[in-house]
Design a protein around this nucleic acid. Structure first.
Lengths: 130, 130
DNA sequence: TATAGTGCTTACCTTTTGTTAAGTGCTTAC
DNA sequence: GTAAGCACTTAACAAAAGGTAAGCACTATA
């Protein structure tokens, strides 16, 4: 009610366009449907291809392969091949992907909060969809 | 070198799938190419439609209109109509979009850092593209 | 002998996302 | 009188993203 909220702090136009560029850069690198999910999934430690696919609901082999290539190219993920039978390939986060810590924390805690908010507003409207 | 980095802190599988869900929820609400940029652009205060379009490089009127509708429906943006000639419509952030503060801060500071990293690695490889 | 698991790749197709260009109806500025 | 600005909307189209199903070459299991 009488709470001072962040959105009342106005940004200067210069700070705004600098932020727009920074957010644009970030989205360019880690935007899209899958990249952040893959990184989150790898936070439990290294995973093999099929293991990853099983832990990320809804991703196809094609999408996973393409995203992993991209993430490797951009230095977020390290691909390690164990020759043997069968050949095993494991993926793990690089040190650089550790710089995403704050982003991931902010995003996941916001996601949790948002889900609660939605649930509450559904109860309020007595409209229990699904 | 000997720095302890975040990515060595492993998550338990349960925490991981909870995080996957939370990040998924967040991406569902604010993912995509434009939503966060629009919110950032509105952090300078309310803006009219064409003003917004000018400040967000590359967005078309159709995309902007669609995203604004979505943002309004989900409670991030408030649409205010001033009847008169010509009719003026202004968009501003709601209090709820203030909850995205940490996400936006984390994302934009990471974006800045990432741009510097890329620039440095380009200098290192003596490959000054563009 | 057949099935499933290993890590992908390929061809084909659908869905999503986005663009451009035009138009609407009204007004003010040149 | 004509152009431009206001806030969009629509149609037609193109590009990007992503899904499905099959296949590869091999092995362990039933």
């Amino acid at each position: 009610m009488a709470k001072i909220n962040n959105c009342t702090e106005l940004l200067s136009p210069e700070a705004c366009s600098a932020n727009l560029m920074a957010v644009g850069d970030a989205l360019y690198a880690i935007g899209g449907k899958w990249k952040l999910r893959i990184i989150v999934a790898l936070k439990t430690g290294s995973k093999r291809f099929n293991e990853l696919q099983r832990s990320i609901e809804g991703i196809s082999a094609k999408a996973l392969a393409a995203e992993l290539k991209d993430l490797e190219l951009n230095g977020f993920v390290h691909r390690r091949v164990f020759t043997g039978t069968p050949v095993v390939v494991s993926y793990e986060l690089t040190e650089y992907s550790g710089t995403l810590g704050e982003v991931l924390d902010a995003l996941s805690s916001w996601g949790r909060m948002h889900r609660e908010t939605i649930k509450k507003s559904m109860r309020k409207h007595k409209n229990p969809v699904v």
